[in-house]
Design a binder for these strands. Structure first.
Lengths: 175, 175
DNA sequence: ACCTGAACACCGTTCAAGT
DNA sequence: ACCTGAACACCGTTCAAGT
């Protein structure tokens, strides 16, 4: 006689995260998710509104994880940038879910988005404008790298160093 | 008596592009695509290998379109950057297909990828390294903008000006 | 409240059959 | 060569029914 673990929004989010992490977001179906929780697909709808909301829960859970690590990473621009890249490459299936879906702000812990934005602003030397330009660069480079869109012979280490150099130069120029 | 237009790889690509353009890539199913061409879904497989290949055809068609426009755009970094942004925002449903899918290089016109890369290198003042950093920034900013991931009050015009300023400063610093 | 089986309207793809 | 209907193994979601 096996006992089934309690099913609630948290356990659903955890099971969904595990599926996405291993097999990508396309592998997340309401049926596979239900199976992982030992119930049938229609039962999920007693806990969540729809598949969209399941994804939003994972997004929220992992944005919190990212935020904590980003906050804790060394405080120089270079260290923040390295953390961003490493987090993304360590979580290739989760990254697009967290940073490339519509952000369900209503399910987010209060202030989390602002906290993360604040760290980027700090790394960019205090300018909101440069912070957005920097974030775009980090996000874009990660995305191109994850999709294998850069030429095969592209030296990614050197490219990331170039990004860091650019930010440091921009900060120095306004000091 | 209605006559059906000829069905071939080109007409399939055109019909697929039209569907994606209007309703996004999720709306592209083999059944809706076949219906647009006045045939049944299984018949598509006499012309293409699978849905993946249909997408690759659209990707190839539009990368060529982008490349032609990018080439023709004014030759200053600022003008190239503006063209990139405008093209993306004018084609919000096509952009991810062209720049965020695995690139099927085997279906691409010879040299097209290198041509586009060359233009970015030129806009970046000749440095391959800075070209990748720049492309990442353009791609990332467009993606964040298309996904509405930046704060509502973010001044996008100013952010793009900041990107242009950064590139110009970087070029100047190595002249 | 939580779970179920059956059903609806969809998918991509295969295949035997027609012309 | 090109097209078809039928089928297979999937989807997300709804709903009446059970406890």
């Amino acid at each position: 006689m096996t006992i089934r673990k309690m099913v609630n929004r948290r356990s659903i989010a955890d099971a969904a995260r595990a599926i996405i992490e291993v097999n990508g977001i396309d592998a997340l179906s309401m049926r596979t998710l239900a199976a992982a929780l030992d119930i049938k697909a229609p039962s999920l709808y007693d806990h969540v509104k729809n598949r969209e909301e399941v994804i939003a829960l994972v997004q929220s859970e992992w944005l919190r994880d990212f935020g904590a690590g980003f906050e804790a990473a060394g405080k120089s621009p270079s260290e923040k940038i390295h953390f961003y890249r490493d987090w993304a490459l360590r979580n290739p299936n989760l990254y697009p879910v967290v940073f490339q879906q519509h952000l369900h702000r209503d399910l987010l812990p209060e202030g989390l988005e602002l906290q993360i934005l604040g760290i980027v602003v700090e790394a960019a030397g205090g300018s909101h404008l440069r912070a957005r330009a920097l974030w775009a660069q980090l996000h874009g480079l990660v995305d191109l790298e994850l999709h294998g869109r850069l030429p095969d012979d592209a030296d990614m280490e050197a490219t990331w160093r170039e990004v860091i150099r650019g930010v440091e130069a921009a900060i120095k120029s306004t000091e």
